[in-house]
Protein backbone atom coordinates (compact mmCIF):
# COMPACT_ATOMS: atom_id res chain seq x y z
CA UNK A 1 0.00 0.00 0.00
CA UNK A 2 1.13 3.50 -0.75
CA UNK A 3 2.29 5.67 2.09
CA UNK A 4 -0.40 7.91 3.49
CA UNK A 5 0.04 11.48 2.26
CA UNK A 6 -1.29 14.20 4.51
CA UNK A 7 -2.83 17.29 3.00
CA UNK A 8 -1.70 20.57 4.44
CA UNK A 9 -3.05 23.97 3.62
CA UNK A 10 -0.47 26.75 3.56
CA UNK A 11 -1.43 30.41 3.69
CA UNK A 12 1.53 32.39 2.37
CA UNK A 13 1.89 36.13 2.29
CA UNK A 14 2.59 37.46 -1.17
CA UNK A 15 5.70 39.50 -0.48
CA UNK A 16 7.87 37.25 1.64
CA UNK A 17 6.77 33.67 2.17
CA UNK A 18 5.21 33.16 -1.25
CA UNK A 19 8.37 34.66 -2.74
CA UNK A 20 10.44 32.38 -0.52
CA UNK A 21 8.46 29.41 -1.85
CA UNK A 22 9.12 30.57 -5.40
CA UNK A 23 12.80 30.90 -4.60
CA UNK A 24 12.90 27.35 -3.25
CA UNK A 25 11.51 26.26 -6.61
CA UNK A 26 13.88 28.41 -8.65
CA UNK A 27 16.76 26.95 -6.64
CA UNK A 28 15.29 23.45 -7.19
CA UNK A 29 15.28 22.76 -3.47
CA UNK A 30 13.05 19.73 -3.01
CA UNK A 31 10.42 19.46 -0.31
CA UNK A 32 7.40 17.23 0.30
CA UNK A 33 4.48 17.74 -2.11
CA UNK A 34 1.85 17.90 0.61
CA UNK A 35 1.05 21.57 0.80
CA UNK A 36 -1.71 23.37 -1.03
CA UNK A 37 -1.03 27.07 -1.15
CA UNK A 38 -3.40 29.99 -0.79
CA UNK A 39 -1.71 33.28 -1.52
CA UNK A 40 -2.81 36.23 0.56
CA UNK A 41 -1.47 39.77 0.41
CA UNK A 42 -0.28 39.72 4.01
CA UNK A 43 -0.28 37.35 6.96
CA UNK A 44 -2.45 40.04 8.53
CA UNK A 45 -5.22 38.96 6.13
CA UNK A 46 -5.54 35.59 7.91
CA UNK A 47 -8.68 35.43 9.98
CA UNK A 48 -8.43 32.55 12.51
CA UNK A 49 -11.69 31.37 11.00
CA UNK A 50 -9.79 30.37 7.83
CA UNK A 51 -7.60 28.04 9.85
CA UNK A 52 -10.56 26.54 11.70
CA UNK A 53 -12.39 25.96 8.44
CA UNK A 54 -9.36 24.08 7.06
CA UNK A 55 -9.35 21.83 10.11
CA UNK A 56 -13.08 21.23 9.87
CA UNK A 57 -12.74 20.39 6.18
CA UNK A 58 -10.25 17.70 7.08
CA UNK A 59 -6.88 19.16 6.22
CA UNK A 60 -4.33 17.26 8.25
CA UNK A 61 -2.47 20.42 8.99
CA UNK A 62 -2.35 24.16 8.39
CA UNK A 63 0.68 26.39 7.97
CA UNK A 64 0.51 30.16 8.07
CA UNK A 65 3.62 32.00 6.96
CA UNK A 66 4.44 35.68 6.74
CA UNK A 67 7.30 38.15 6.65
CA UNK A 68 9.83 38.38 9.43
CA UNK A 69 9.20 41.10 12.02
CA UNK A 70 10.13 44.40 10.43
CA UNK A 71 9.90 43.11 6.84
CA UNK A 72 6.13 43.43 6.39
CA UNK A 73 5.25 45.05 3.07
CA UNK A 74 2.30 46.60 4.86
CA UNK A 75 4.40 47.94 7.74
CA UNK A 76 2.76 46.15 10.65
CA UNK A 77 0.38 43.53 9.24
CA UNK A 78 2.47 40.64 10.53
CA UNK A 79 2.66 42.17 14.00
CA UNK A 80 -1.12 42.37 14.25
CA UNK A 81 -1.33 38.85 12.83
CA UNK A 82 1.18 37.52 15.34
CA UNK A 83 -1.17 38.36 18.22
CA UNK A 84 -4.05 36.57 16.52
CA UNK A 85 -1.90 33.54 15.85
CA UNK A 86 -0.66 33.37 19.44
CA UNK A 87 -4.21 33.31 20.78
CA UNK A 88 -5.47 30.89 18.13
CA UNK A 89 -2.64 28.46 18.73
CA UNK A 90 -3.04 28.62 22.49
CA UNK A 91 -6.78 27.97 22.32
CA UNK A 92 -6.48 25.17 19.76
CA UNK A 93 -3.92 23.34 21.83
CA UNK A 94 -5.88 23.97 24.98
CA UNK A 95 -8.96 22.21 23.63
CA UNK A 96 -6.77 19.32 22.56
CA UNK A 97 -5.78 19.89 18.95
CA UNK A 98 -2.33 18.36 18.57
CA UNK A 99 0.35 21.09 18.64
CA UNK A 100 1.80 20.10 15.26
CA UNK A 101 -1.44 20.50 13.34
CA UNK A 102 -1.39 24.24 13.04
CA UNK A 103 1.98 25.88 12.66
CA UNK A 104 3.31 29.33 11.92
CA UNK A 105 6.51 30.56 10.35
CA UNK A 106 8.30 33.65 9.11
CA UNK A 107 10.00 33.07 5.78
CA UNK A 108 11.56 35.90 3.83
CA UNK A 109 11.78 36.29 0.07
CA UNK A 110 15.42 35.27 0.31
CA UNK A 111 14.88 32.13 2.35
CA UNK A 112 14.14 29.44 -0.22
CA UNK A 113 15.95 26.91 1.83
CA UNK A 114 14.18 27.85 5.02
CA UNK A 115 10.87 27.51 3.22
CA UNK A 116 11.75 23.98 2.19
CA UNK A 117 12.88 23.19 5.72
CA UNK A 118 9.66 24.52 7.19
CA UNK A 119 7.55 22.46 4.80
CA UNK A 120 9.61 19.35 5.52
CA UNK A 121 9.30 19.83 9.23
CA UNK A 122 5.58 20.53 9.18
CA UNK A 123 4.95 17.57 6.90
CA UNK A 124 7.01 15.25 9.08
CA UNK A 125 5.27 16.47 12.23
CA UNK A 126 1.91 15.80 10.67
CA UNK A 127 2.87 12.43 9.28
CA UNK A 128 3.83 11.51 12.80
CA UNK A 129 0.46 12.66 14.11
CA UNK A 130 -1.45 10.71 11.48
CA UNK A 131 -4.66 11.77 9.76
CA UNK A 132 -6.57 14.56 11.45
CA UNK A 133 -9.65 13.49 13.36
CA UNK A 134 -10.34 16.17 15.91
CA UNK A 135 -12.55 19.01 14.67
CA UNK A 136 -12.97 17.24 11.33
CA UNK A 137 -16.56 17.34 10.23
CA UNK A 138 -18.00 14.30 8.54
CA UNK A 139 -20.02 15.65 5.66
Amino acid sequence: MKEWQPKILAFLCNWCSYAGADLAGVSRIQYPPNIRVIRVPCSGRIDPIFVLKCLENGFDGVLVSGCHPGDCHYISGNYVARRKFAVLKAILEFIGIEPGRVQFSWVSAGEGEKFAQVISKVTEDIKELGPAKRLVKSF
Binding site: A24, G25, R28, I29, Q30, V37, R39
Partner: peptide, 14 residues
Protein backbone atom coordinates in the same frame (compact mmCIF):
# COMPACT_ATOMS: atom_id res chain seq x y z
CA UNK B 1 -2.12 28.39 -10.21
CA UNK B 2 1.58 28.11 -9.49
CA UNK B 3 2.39 24.63 -10.75
CA UNK B 4 6.02 25.31 -11.67
CA UNK B 5 7.94 27.23 -9.00
CA UNK B 6 5.88 25.73 -6.20
CA UNK B 7 5.17 22.33 -7.71
CA UNK B 8 7.13 20.76 -10.58
CA UNK B 9 10.41 22.39 -9.58
CA UNK B 10 10.03 21.49 -5.94
CA UNK B 11 8.89 17.88 -6.40
CA UNK B 12 10.96 16.70 -9.32
CA UNK B 13 11.28 13.17 -8.05
CA UNK B 14 7.62 12.64 -7.23
Amino acid sequence: ANIRDQCSWAHMNE
